[in-house]
Structure formats: C-alpha cells, structure tokens
Design a binder for these strands. Structure first.
Lengths: 190, 190
DNA sequence: CTGGCACGATAACATTTGTTTAGAATAACC
DNA sequence: GGTTATTCTAAACAAATGTTATCGTGCCAG
C-alpha cells in the first residue's frame, strides 16, 4: 500500500521537505478494519488520528436511553478521530466505527506531537486542521438552522451521491436527526 | 477603559513578553455598540475580531424566507466574529448584533496577522483559538443530537442563569430552534 | 400624557415527526 | 442451501411543533 494520499493531503496545507515527511511517516502505519469494527470507542482516550485510504467510517454517540446517533460520516482522503478527546486527553464521547471495510493510515499521538515540535510548519498544520474542522462544523450547524430534514436529505444526496449504496438508511436517518421510518416517508414524497 | 481582560484571555493560551503584548495592543482599539446595532453584516467580509468587555452579542443568519436564526450568543470575555469569513476572506453568512449596549476591543485583521507573524507563539495562538471553537462547536452539535428543545432550554438556563433578563425570549427560542410560541408553551410545562 | 410598538401568554388548529407493528426483500452466516 | 438477521416500506395512531390570531402589558418616542 501507499502513503502518498496522506502526504498529498498534508502538502495541501503546509510545505514539507521530503526528509521531514519521511520521518513523520515512520511513526505511522497501515491498518484495516472490517465492517462494523470500531476504530475507537466512547470512554477511551483517543490516541490516534486516522487517515482514510479506502472506506467509510461514522462517528456515533449513544444517549442515556441507549440510542445511537450518527454525528459524522468520513470518506476517503479525510482525517478522522474524536479530536476533542485527542486534544484534551479526556474520554471520548464519540465512538468511531467502520461502515464498510476500511483501510486507514494510523497517525499515533507521538507522530502528531513530533510533527508539532519538529516539522518546520508544525503549528501551522495544527492550526489549519483545526480551522478546517471549524469551518466544517460551522456549516453543519448552520444547516441545522436553515434546512428542514427533507432539505438536508437532498443536500446530502447531492454532496455524496452514492451514499445509499454504501450506508444503511437508518444511519442516514440518524445523521439527519429523524427516525428511519420518517426518512422512508420523506423519500416517498420527493 | 482597560485592555487587561484581553491580555488575560490571551495569556491563558500563550506566554507573551510585555513588549509583544504592548505592540499587539497598539493595533487594537475600543468601540461601543448600542442595542441592536450591528458589529458586522451578512455579505461583508469580516475584517475584525471583537473581544467583549461588557455586553451581549448574537450571531444571526437570515434564511431565504427572510427569517432570522440566532446561531450564537456571546458574553463578556469572549472573542467573536464570523471566523469562516475572517479566515477565508469570503462574504460573511452571519450578522453580528449587539443584544444590549456592548463595549468591545476591536482586533483588526492587521493585528491578527501581525500576531501570527511576530508573536513568538503566534501560530500556537491561532491553533488554540481554532481548537477552542472546534470544541465549542463539537459540544453544540452533540447537544442537537442528544437533547430535546426542552432539555436544551434547561441546559441553557443553567449555563446562563440570567439570560431571561438580558435576552428577549424570541431570540432564545430562535437559538433553541423552536418557535417563540412553542418556547412559551415549553416553559409552562416545566 | 399618549399612541404605537415590541414582547410575551394563550388557545385553536394544522403540520411534522415519532412510535409501534407488520410484512416483504435482501444480505449475512453456518 | 437453508436459516436467521438486517433492511426497507407501509399504515395507523400518538406526540411534538408550527401557525395564526388575539389579548394584555410595559416601554418609549413624540
């Protein structure tokens, strides 16, 4: 397998010498998770960031009634973990689960820490990652205010056209914040 | 007036020499907005970050039907602006409005840029601000999934006990994502 | 002082969404 | 290959939330 996609993603944010990149990568390794396997669990302190080479994961949170809520989907070429847990070293509130067979590059905490301390633009990388996710959350939150579940469903279908072939509908419903039965109803009326 | 609260907030994130802090502050100035005045408007590129000395502001967004949605409230000792607009230099989607008479320190773009480039820990400051807001958004989004409007109302009342004395109820309803009429109904049944 | 206006409560009704249950198609498993 | 889960749809009813209209209060500009 090939770590190029990861290097490419990093080089979109900062400039790195080949030596720096190589050293950084030496802390990282590949791993494959099969369907429904957990990359991380609620309650554990998140110690790794994952970069998805192939596959889909979802972040989910379980409420006091035991219901699962899908908070995010993540696809190829994205970084994913419970960042709040990773940054603060507090127990994660989100679990991270493979929706289909998923290959990732694992970036352990020591890789990240080495990067912040030793990459020439380490802090800038951290800032840009945080800013990227900030913008992502900003958009997500606005969507909650501006759009109905039906509209959010249509938007999602545009951004991620073949989601229906890769993700079970009840997870999509959960992500949209409606019951699976209701999503089925909404689809019919579109 | 006194810029100490701003310095204090910055020094909770990074260490600064007094000289650095002084130079940074020389780019900043005080401003007072009266009730309902706008600190920034949807469509303009956000060129300043505000630090609230005294008062309350809200971020709001207007949908295609002309309805206002209150996305955030910001209180004393907080930084506020449309960060997405500020970072990307794109037109702001949020307007920023004083809910009551509000005194702020204005941090113009050139202050921030000078800080990133010249403060010894400039990039770290940027990273921490972005991370701080990341965590804030993370919690906000989880709340949307985990709690009903009634529960969100109770949580808000705990975190911000005298909000009812300082913010009109229809703005609170908008923030919670329900109609003013419905919030009135919810309060009765608690 | 006073007329208008913003604000909030309430009631009645409409719409949206959740819940429960059932059934059929499909996929996973041994 | 057959059995068992999983997934989706559908219908009927319940609960939550939106909408409209009305009323009373307090506030502030003139």
């Amino acid at each position: 397998m090939n770590k190029e996609p990861l290097i490419g993603a990093m080089r979109q944010m900062i400039t790195m010498f080949d030596q720096e990149a190589e050293k950084f990568l030496s802390f990282c390794y590949f791993k494959t998770f099969h369907q429904k396997e957990f990359l991380g669990r609620q309650g554990e302190v998140c110690q790794d960031i994952f970069f998805i080479i192939k596959g889909i994961t979802r972040s989910l949170i379980v409420d006091t009634a035991g219901e699962e809520h899908t908070i995010h989907f993540s696809l190829e070429n994205q970084f994913i973990c419970d960042y709040t847990s990773f940054m603060l070293q507090t127990p994660a509130t989100n679990s991270l689960q493979a929706v289909e067979e998923t290959e990732v590059v694992v970036l352990p905490r020591k890789a990240i820490e080495w990067g912040y301390a030793n990459l020439q633009q380490g802090d800038k990388l951290g800032r840009l990652i945080a800013e990227y996710y900030f913008i992502y959350f900003d958009i997500r939150l606005k969507n909650q205010y501006l759009f109905t579940p039906a509209q959010r469903y249509e938007n999602l279908s545009k951004v991620f056209p073949n989601i229906h072939n890769r993700v079970p509908q009840h997870m999509i419903a959960s992500y949209l914040g409606v019951s699976p039965v209701h999503l089925s109803r909404l689809k019919k009326s579109l």
